[in-house]
Amino acid sequence: MENLALYLLAFLIFPGFLFTGTFGLVVSWLDRKVSALIQWRVGPPFFQPFYDVLKLWQKELIIPRSAKEIGFIVAPFIGLAATSLLATMIGVINLRPEYQFVGDVIVILYLMIIPPLAIIWGGFSSGNPLAAVGANREIKLMMGYELPFLLAVATVFFKVGSVSLGEIIQYQQVHGALLKHPSMIVAFIVSLLWLQAKLAEIPFDISEAECEIMEGPFIEYSGPLLGVYKVMMAMLHVVCPWFLISLFWGGTSLQGWGILWSLLKYIFIIVLVILIKNTNPRVRIDQAVKFFWGWVTLLALIAMALMFLGY
């Protein structure tokens, strides 16, 4: 029973839903503020994302007549639950590497596919043609970006000789961060491109292109369900960079200066994402898939070759 209570605590409060959700909303403020500063504006107040989500909870929920109700309502919650579970796993293994199990990276990789799948399901269930177009693009983009990222993660597997996140972190605590190897720097660049597409940020926000297909899968969502999606996307902005830090950059720690150093690593990655987002136009879906299956996969293969050559 005590174990169950601890697991629930980890899932619901720290490092799961509550912590990651709050932190994610703060990060979405950072996102909007940095974008505003780049565009020479003042930007929103600090609590703006919290106001947005609270307001969405107070709005009316409309379910369109053409929607398949079960999928339309359940999909956002499945995405939110999967993201909370991801945050819990990555957080717990970062703080206590002994909680690892064999193949937990593979479980994390599978869980990371669930939020896009939830978006696709919700989009198709809403019965809106623009949402169907958006969901369709999301599927194609997912097929595009997963291949090079899996190759990059496999490079880490071969370098460390393990498929468990705890062992990868412990290896880095002994030998120093993996990023000091040239092969790992190449794999990290591949992962950064994956991150941009995974977080659906410009130039890869093709599935929810605002001026073109009106937020795609989210077009019919209103009120509380839209709020759930907003929180889910905010949490993904925390979880995915955190996973990359654990894989390549020595993980995070909560001891002494470790907190500051971990935060700096995270802010470096997220500000890089925001800068790329603010300085690029959106690409078409065929361009994106060609880019990921062509150049980025080539880069991932180069990383793997460099790793086998011993760099």
Binding site: A36, Q39, P44, C211, L226
Partner: peptide
């Protein structure tokens, strides 16, 4: 535009009437 910047008040232009 930057001169008036309504995002200071949390005003945001959305693309779907549902939002």
């Amino acid at each position: 535009t930057p001169r008036f910047d309504v995002e200071r008040f949390g005003i945001k232009l959305v693309v779907s009437p549902r939002h």
